[in-house]
Every structure is written in C-alpha cells, then in structure tokens.
Amino acid sequence: MWRNRKRDLMIICGVALIGALLPLGVADFFRYLVVLVSIYGIAALGLNIFMGYCGQINMGSAGFFCIGAYVPTMLQVKYELHYLIGFPLAILFSLLVAWLLSYPLLRLKGHAMAIGTLSFGMAVYLIAERFPELTGGADGITVPAMTIPGVEVGDKFYYYLILACFLFSYLGCYFLMDSRIGRALKAIRDDEDAALALGINIDQYKRFAWLVNSALMSVAGSLFAQQAGFLSPSTFALWTSISVLVMICVGGLGTNLGSVLGAAIMTLLPYILVSIQEYIMLTQGIILFCVLRFMPDGIVGTLPKLIRRNGRSKQAVAGSGEVAL
C-alpha cells in the first residue's frame, strides 16, 4: 500500500505547491519555521543515507555542516566572492574532505567509527572556535546578505531557494533509494558478508553514502548560514551532530519521510514547549529515551503498524513493512 510511486510523487508535488504558495499568506515567523525544518530536513536526509540505509555511524556530521556554513561566508567576507559561487565550492570542499577522511574512517566499525567521526566533528568545531583569523572566532561573524546584480534579495528569495534545495534533495534521495544503489546500500546494512557474496563492492558503496552525507550536510550548512545571517562556532558543537542523529531516530531510521518528520518535530519542539524552558535538557533526554525504548522504528515505522492493527485485517499487514516515501 505504501510502495506507490505515482501517489508518492503526487504527494511530493502537492507539498511543493503548498510550500510555494505559503509565503503569500502567512507570517514571517511561520515561514522561518518552514525554512528551518527544510534545512534540518536536508541534513537529516543526508545522515539517513549513511546511517539509516547504509547502516554506518556518523557522530560528526556537524563538521560538514560547519564547513558548508563557513566556506561560502568566509569567501564572501574575505574575497568578496558571490555566495552562489561559494555555495558549490563549499560542497566540493566538503566532498574533498569527506573523500580524504573516507580512507581512515570507513575501515572502522561500530564504536570506532562513532568516535572517529565524532573527533572529526569536534576538530572542525575547535578549529572554527580557536582560529579567529580563519572564521571570526567564538564571537561569531555576520553573514553578508546575498545580492543579485546589486540588489539585496529578501527573505522570500531565501525561502524559495531553500525550499527548492529541499525538494531536490528529497526527490534525489527518493529516487536514489529506489534504485540499484539504494538496494545495494540496504544489502550492506542488513548483512555485510552476504552483500559481499552478492558481488557488491562494499567499500565503494559505503564511500558513496558517506560522500552523499557530507554533500547534503554541506548544502544544509550553506543554506543555514544565509538564513541565520550570523554564524558562531557554538552552533556546530557536538550537540548539533547528536540532534541530527536524534531526528532520524525519532522519525524512523532508514526512511526519507521519517528523516524529514523527525527534523520537523525536533526543530519545532523548543518553539512548542515555551513554558518549560528550564527543563529543556531533561525533556530532550526523555523524548529520545521513549522513542528508542517504545518505538524503535520511529514514527514512520510505528504509526502505520498501529493504524493497520486497528483498522485492517491481519492479512494486509503481512509483508508490507516497508515505507518507500
């Protein structure tokens, strides 16, 4: 019932249309939330390919987020390079870093990969914080507003730019995971030895997933820098890596829809829980705990099961555990 490409694409187009028309009628703050969710959605989609589909661990994704944010900003501040040129350069730089790192890091397994990626993320954060001549230091730096032939573009331009990037990322991930590559990644996740026996080049596919992860993180970072208008290293500390990780777990590991839903929920949560700010850390811990303990398949994995259990005959349940969207 879920594997229906035509219907999925129609839903995606519908969301795109709503998104495109939205700025006409709603407040700036609402638009801002949509933008924020889209940015973290892109980041979550990237991490999901590496963790959810390929079954690896990345605790340093904020490192690429940071590179994506700082490279175009500093190029613009120091060399007056236009943001739209810096943006692809940041992706290329992230890919280069990721490619170099892939040789030591992707050989590792489990915990070692966790701490290896974590130390990459921490190293990037510390470099951003401790080398003010490179990044403006811990005080942060103002991101110059983007101009298109001389005219400063407004919030609406960013909105459409970010929404377009999000939709492209989503569609990209959607088709990618339905393709041969996606199936190979899932095979690696499910059983590495079996995948090897099937003739899948594990190293290459892992590297591919890692590069896609870094590229999407970098895209999210670049967009983030523009919409925030201000960058400071503390945005890219360890907690950011972890929160993106929590997003994909909450939504449902290994589903694109889950990643985006998780990003939406975790991003909006602080704005919904206005009255209990002193307890924010405790709340985040409890949410993570409850998701892991009581619905380890995340929202996307758990809700359909509940709906089916209540509404349909048991026959329909069998064999349709997978969510494609």
Binding site: F29, Y32, L33, F230, P270
Partner: peptide, 22 residues
C-alpha cells in the same frame, strides 16, 4: 515569555522572530 537559547546565536534569531511575530 521565556525561551532558552542554549548559548547558540543561530537559535536566538528564531527565538527573536517568535517573540516579535507570535
């Protein structure tokens, strides 16, 4: 209306927007 910013400058901009508009 109290809101935590976690020492994160990027977060504070969203919070300020919320204060102003919501």
């Amino acid at each position: 209306i109290t809101q935590d910013n976690g020492s994160d400058p990027a977060k504070v901009i969203g919070i300020a927007k919320m204060f102003k508009e919501k």
